[in-house]
Design a protein around this nucleic acid. Structure first.
Lengths: 130, 130, 130, 130
DNA sequence: GTGGTCTAGACCACT
DNA sequence: GTGGTCTAGACCACG
């Protein structure tokens, strides 16, 4: 559970956040499900507990999970709704990157192709370098 | 010359790099043109010379500009070719972001629209947040 | 660890780069090994942290080491391969110097002798004067 | 006369020094020959007079040329002898570079080949980068 | 004047 | 603790 790539330049806590959100979006994690304990994850993934907690705190802040001290963390009952609402923000990221590339002289067609093929490839090889 | 946003999360030196590359791509800076001196830019932009130089060193390393101690920095005579070659790398960034968003449940159509409209908007307001 | 000569004309950061590469080539540093922290080296060698980092950034760029913010710098898992690939570039340096000397009237034999004896002398006294 | 490559990273004044020494070594310039005036060279090569003077001062210091204020610069009557004497110093450069490369894992054979072929190639393309 | 190197020290994000 | 960015200011070599 939770795929973390320690060789990636992407911060580990961000990878955890994205991993949890991805599992919720894909239905692997359902609303009200209990998440593994920080201690468990720390041992399983060989990751500093502080790092995991940092990710969980952020997920809690976003309302994706809810942490009950002493009981654990649970997927919020409206997690999927909140994820949907957050999608517009993520889309803006894409727009901004596209604009930046456009100003560098990359054609709209090339970008549309890149996006299109990225969605088609159902590959697992998630190499997220910085 | 060179638009820098100090409040952006993007490092200043990266903004300088992109800014120079953008000006070359758009023809404002032509091949073999002399760039403003590091000290000049430092004063104009109110940025530490070291930060400017960090950007110029990276541009030199990429072969976009060439710096001659005692003479100044110049746009490389094959800068536009090199920029073109580098575009595939930048496109890969877009693909990776698209894949990430796709796995979060964002539809291919929404992304294509976002990219498409980003390219159409010929707005000048370059807000590069994170 | 890492022999630095502050009186040398060769920039300190270059000496650090070569020193690290030498230790990897000779097996003192192995792939995936953790390098001393920038702050540690700074204290040990009495060199400004910025100078150490400048060297590490270049090594990271060459793919010889990988730096993870918050975790440290590590020898890349394919560092020896990359070093091997980079050797042809270094050999070109030798060729260029040889050609320059040849045009100055130095005989091929003298040069071959110089190179040959340099490789035989297994002296440790590394005086790198420009 | 005097081949200067302004696109080279090698300092211009060094290129001038080497160029003069090369022409003396090859017999193009003979002992007691008069060198072009600094002003002439400055115009011909489009180089700052200070730069040329700096090179001539160094050549004078080495005893390769002698400058008579008001009359010009002349190849010293013992220039070839002095160049021969200086060769051992240049050979030491080669030894040091060879040692450095050897410690990086480059084999003696590869280096001997590189030197050997450099001397055989009577190519004119002198690309001296950095 | 130019760029290149180095030091000193601050602040940030990440683990 | 770690590395990454930035500022301030010094000194050097080059033109």
């Amino acid at each position: 559970m939770l795929s973390i790539d320690k060789t990636s330049k992407k911060p580990i806590y961000e990878q955890i956040i994205e991993s949890v959100e991805r599992e919720i979006a894909s239905g692997i994690l359902k609303e009200n499900d209990k998440l593994p304990s920080i201690r468990d994850l720390s041992l399983t993934l060989s990751i500093n507990p502080n790092t995991i907690q940092k990710a969980f705190i952020e997920l809690d802040r976003r309302g994706i999970i809810i942490s009950y001290p002493g009981r654990g963390c649970f997927v919020a009952s409206d997690a999927t709704d909140r994820l949907r609402l957050a999608q517009s923000d993520r889309l803006r990221e894409l727009s901004e990157l596209a604009l930046e590339l456009y100003e560098l002289g990359i054609s709209k067609e090339d970008m549309l192709n890149a996006v299109s093929s990225a969605c088609s490839d159902k590959r697992q090889d998630r190499k997220e370098n910085k």
